[in-house]
Computed example of a mutant assay.
Amino acid sequence: MTDKPILFNGPMVRTILEGRKTQTRRVIKPQLGDIARAFQFVPGKWRFLDHSRARVHQLFSPPFSTGDRLWVREAHFLTNKHAYRLSVGVDQSINPDDDYQACVYAEGFDLSRTGMRLRPSIHMPRWASRLTLIVEDVRVQRLQDISEADAKSEGCDAEQAKSLALCDGAMPGNSKRCFHWLWNSINGPEAWDANPWVAAITFRAIRANIDSPEARA
């Protein structure tokens, strides 16, 4: 079991907070060792020889393992703890090493009149994370092999997501097409067609900092 950070954009943080997202997919690349023995060239394409789960994991070395604890990094800003403490609906965390400093989260907060400078998710300190994900399963697969059920677990319930402008190109009730649209919106217009190998990570979300008693239980 290892503690690791993981980045999510605002809409994905929202779906986790709402309990609609229990999977995420991250692009991975094969290790250089054993490539020659793992693939065989047949007319027009390379064919993968061994599809066993153990062999695929060995070759691609997913970034996370079952039992890992992931602390979510998201867009935010740092301010003093009194700035928004009486504001309705504003979620903030206090720095345990400096109880004058607080973190306020961009998702669900209107920054337009604050004048505060938004900090990218990559700069979020560990103490400020409000979401901990417990990894329950990791599978290696091609991106386009995602099932309709798994697409829904990615937060792409097409009926709900369309109202959130997450999948404007999806047909109602088609969660896989919604995920297709979402993947391209995050990774680029041809990202889906590239059909990369991905780590499909199933997790259980805890709405608490990774160092809190709730996340250690």
Rank of each mutant, 00 (worst) to 15 (best):
D34E: 13
I35C: 10
F39D: 05
Q40P: 00
F41I: 09
F41P: 00
W46G: 07
W46Q: 09
D50C: 06
D50Y: 07
H51Y: 11
H51K: 12
S52T: 15
R55I: 03
R55Y: 10
V56Y: 07
V56P: 00
V56D: 00
H57E: 12
H57Y: 06
H57V: 08
Q58P: 00
Q58V: 00
F60G: 01
F60S: 00
P62A: 09
P63R: 04
P63N: 04
P63K: 03
F64P: 02
G67P: 04
D68P: 03
R69S: 11
R69H: 07
R69Y: 00
R69F: 01
L70Y: 06
L70D: 03
W71M: 02
W71V: 03
V72R: 05
R73H: 04
R73F: 02
R73I: 05
E74H: 11
E74K: 07
A75D: 15
A75M: 05
F77W: 07
T79E: 07
H82A: 15
A83D: 15
Y84S: 08
L86A: 14
L86N: 15
L86Q: 13
L86Y: 14
V88H: 12
V88K: 15
Q92R: 12
S93Y: 10
I94P: 09
N95Q: 09
N95V: 06
N95C: 14
P96E: 03
D97V: 08
D98S: 13
D99G: 02
Y100E: 15
Q101V: 15
A102F: 08
A102D: 03
G108Q: 11
F109S: 04
F109N: 06
D110L: 04
L111R: 13
S112N: 04
R113Q: 15
R113S: 14
T114W: 00
M116G: 07
M116D: 14
R117I: 13
R117T: 14
L118V: 12
R119G: 02
P120I: 04
I122S: 13
I122P: 00
H123S: 11
H123Q: 12
P125D: 06
P125W: 08
P125V: 05
R126P: 03
R126I: 11
W127H: 00
W127S: 06
